[in-house]
Design a protein around this nucleic acid. Structure first.
Lengths: 344, 344
DNA sequence: CTGAAAGCGCTAACAT
DNA sequence: ATGTTAGCGCTTTCAG
């Protein structure tokens, strides 16, 4: 890369000092009309634009935020990145993306790295599950006042800003829908042990209880990862062991494909043979007419980003530890059958 | 954000000069064992790590690359980002992501911005279509020797490194498959006018010609964007106007959902009523048993990234204008029917 | 209204 | 082996 043009070059060409040139570029202070024009001409002639690195060092702000998440190939994640980047762009911020692949050590490394790079803030979808502890040496990374907003998942015992869906309520509502239709044995397919999933299960349990049903842990089948193949296997096992199941409730995106494949293999028709209710809207859902809990990822990203901006500007310390719930919508399609006995 | 710890703090605590502390941190030059230990202790005590911004300014390298693309929500794009980030991470590089939303002005703005940020290199999936011209003022952005690798799409008349699938050959092979099965009227659904699509159509034409069929432009239905709804509409129109079509060949991902929806609406069964052949593997494809041209996006990302590293190190100028073709694989499933007349 | 000069944190050539 | 010092490009205080 050849040498870039600096403000010195501009100043020299315009016949003014570096300071005056800087005033024109940065548009502050007082500059005579004559100087301004000369500098502007020089800028144009040299095609100058400021070196952001130098500005960062000087101003102590990088105009950059980081999004640290499991895997951009996941649809929740890439929708989040899209929303954040769009919002950030409006304010002139760029977005660095880091995949943890759900590995905590990698997550820690990324946070460390982003701090060394002095990004102005971090949006984090943490890989910590509910039963894992943060080691003392790393606690500072999560607890310092470095601007950071959690998204989708919270870490147990950590007072931090979190933006996420109203999981309990939406899951309560979704489960109630199935219960109203007469389903009593509702199987669950989900990834193990993220706070998000725990909340959704809480909503499920609450709805069951209201119908006088106590939750049966055996109907909850967990996968270790967001992997369709594993989802498929787990679904098979669940159906084998619990033939009484009339509905399957899937708590993560990327899992429904596996479930559908298993149903296809067994020649079970969605709705007629088994009801399906699913979190997150994918291409599949419309095609299979799946009733779906749709998270407003766009909003989550936007709110997270703006909240982060507040933290960055020091406007928001009072709200530390705040959780913002973005409502998820249930889109009723046609995958849940009414199995109430018409008794008269 | 509170003041960070600098190398001066380390030096002071260790009782040595900044230079010596720097030698320990950067692991170069000669330092006595005693000093080394004192400095290392100070680093640990203060939890020091170097300010990457300052290093960047000094070393003229940011350890950052940018990926500029249409939209991370697109599966090709996010798989590319994933692959690039993984490869970059190995070498200690971070990845900035920029969505152009297929808008050329935004693309230009991003390139400009990434240059001002002095990223070490750019991977670009350009929004330029084959018939658009780069304006003279912006030509420099695309033609300078700033390290840049194109992915998936090339810009007409620009000698630049491009990494992409062997579109012509793979499309030729895919079309031949349909022809062998007896299909003569093969409709195409594709986004208009990207170089990639042009190439795939060239492969299609070549195969047709070998079978003594000349290409009928009317069977090629184009969408303006990667949008399932538009794909659906366009499919309907195509089927209405050309009932003679026995197979549909879809040249982009994100389009097949729309086609499938339209087929569903018309009660046309995949394979039995109409054959389908599709580019890019999505969740849908396995479920619908779609025969698919699978691009090796992982490889494309990896190769693009490594090629970029070569350019960054100045190792590769001789190969300027080189196009690397990554072979796509055809996964034969069961969506193409044999309609040859068995005549005996 | 303008310019000189200091300093952000780091590296490295040079001198000791 | 170690310290001094200059300088990366920019901003901004202070003097004039």
């Amino acid at each position: 890369m050849k040498q870039s043009i600096t403000i010195n070059d501009v100043a020299k060409l315009a016949g003014v000092s570096r300071a005056t040139a800087g005033r024109v570029v940065g548009n502050y202070g007082n500059v005579s009309e004559k100087s301004r024009l000369r500098v502007q001409a020089a800028i144009k002639e040299l095609n100058y634009s400021p070196n952001t690195i130098a500005q960062s060092l000087r101003n102590n702000t990088t105009k950059t935020i980081a999004v640290i998440l499991g895997n951009v190939k996941n649809n929740y994640c890439n929708a989040l990145v899209y929303a954040v980047e769009k919002e950030a762009q409006k304010e002139g911020y760029s977005v660095i993306i880091c995949n943890t692949r759900e590995n905590i050590q990698r997550e820690i490394m990324h946070i460390q790295n982003m701090r060394n790079r002095h990004v102005d803030g971090i949006i984090l979808m943490s890989a910590f599950t509910t039963d894992e502890q943060i080691r003392d040496e790393e606690k500072e990374l999560y607890e310092s006042n470095y601007p950071m907003v959690f998204v989708d998942r919270k870490i147990h015992g950590l007072k931090r800003d979190v933006i996420m869906s109203n999981n309990v309520e939406a899951s309560y509502e979704a489960t109630s829908h199935l219960l109203k239709l007469g389903h009593k044995n509702i199987g669950i397919i989900a990834t193990a042990d993220y706070s998000t999933i725990r909340e959704r299960i809480r909503g499920y349990e609450k709805a069951l209880n209201e119908y006088g049903i106590s939750m049966n842990e055996e109907l909850i089948a967990e996968t270790t990862a967001l992997d369709p193949d594993e989802a498929r296997m787990v679904t098979g096992k669940l159906l084998d062991e619990h033939p009484e199941i009339t509905a399957i409730y899937i708590l993560n995106n990327s899992l429904s494909a596996g479930v559908l494949l298993e149903l296809k293999k067994r020649n079970l028709r969605v709705r007629d043979d088994i009801s399906l209710l699913v979190w997150d809207d994918e291409m599949l859902n419309q095609l299979f007419d799946l009733t779906t809990v749709v998270q407003s990822i766009d909003n989550i990203g936007k709110v997270a980003c703006n909240r982060l901006f507040e933290l960055m500007q020091g406007k928001a310390e009072a709200r530390e530890g705040y959780t913002e719930r973005i409502p998820a919508q249930i889109v009723y399609r046609n995958s849940c059958k009414n199995i109430n006995v018409i008794d008269n």
